[in-house]
Design a binder for these strands. Sequence first.
DNA 1: AAGTGGAGCAACCGCACCATG
DNA 2: ACATGGTGCGGTTGCTCCACT
Length: 325
Amino acid sequence: MGRAPCCDKANVKRGPWSPEEDAKLKSYIEEHGTGGNWIALPHKIGLKRCGKSCRLRWLNYLRPNIKHGSFSEEEDHIICTLYLSIGSRWSIIAAQLPGRTDNDIKNYWNTRLKKKLMGKQRKDHQSSKRGGQIKQEMKNEVLEDLKAPSLCMSMNLYQSYNWPTTEFPMVLTNPNPQHNHDQQELHVKPQDPTFEHYQFGTTSNQPELFNQSSEKPIPTAGYHPETPNTPYLVNGDGMMTLFQEFNNYPFGMNNEFGTQLNQFDHGLVGGLDNLVNGSNCTSSSAESTSSWSDPLTCPPPMTYEDCRRGLLQNCPPHQHPTRFQ
DNA sequence: AAGTGGAGCAACCGCACCATG
DNA sequence: ACATGGTGCGGTTGCTCCACT
């Protein structure tokens, strides 16, 4: 049995709000507040609206200090950066943009920014046939973003912190069957001073968020000293995302930009795939089904189990890594 | 001028979470 | 521990406007 509807849909008005309804709702809330009960609010005011509808109207439109109109370049950048790191958590993204609502940002993303990025990808797709210079530039942009305080901070918000205390090896196997002997080993040691760490929270300009995260500062992004072209990210679950350039491999992918994303988490990686590779690794679209050697498509995603198998093959039994939870 | 299609955006829907009894 | 109701959220829908033919 489903739950009871929040209001009698037959007797509530739907659709666009009239100026009179807006004025009623606004003046009542400004004078009395919401009373902590949106459902009861329309009855008190004499509005034939659903409580949820009132809430939405207030939050998205009538509330003071709501910013309408076009988004600035800076706001664009913040939205893109956060979207790449945390995905479609619009309310969280909105919290970083004073005066903007989650609905606004969601619409803006869906109608403008997504297309803007896709347009950029298409240009890249074309230019990659001429050497992929723009892709390299995009990669650099993305990697710069990975260092950005806003990104680090935002990622920190959504992770829990169960970080291993001792060094562990991460062995990555090329999932392409033709090259599955190619492995790259990465030793990860939390707070190893030889790592170039970017710690969550340390550059946050949001005190309350900083406090939330500062109890357990952990390394979250960096570059392995022996593979400086291989930046990595690790989330609070101890899961690693490694951005492994094809040109680290010996099988002729120089001058192509691709990423081997070891994906144990969603959001960030998917976002980067979309941005950098111009297709979605997780989709089954025709664009994304060709072989890994095609620089315009993603490699097959490496699962946690894939990676774990790689680890088990290469670790002494007593050092078998476990999932850090 | 009329028809058509796409873009932009406000609003709705349904689910998940949380507080409370 | 469970049921219930309120709230928050992300995804989707549908309306309006505008450019193009």
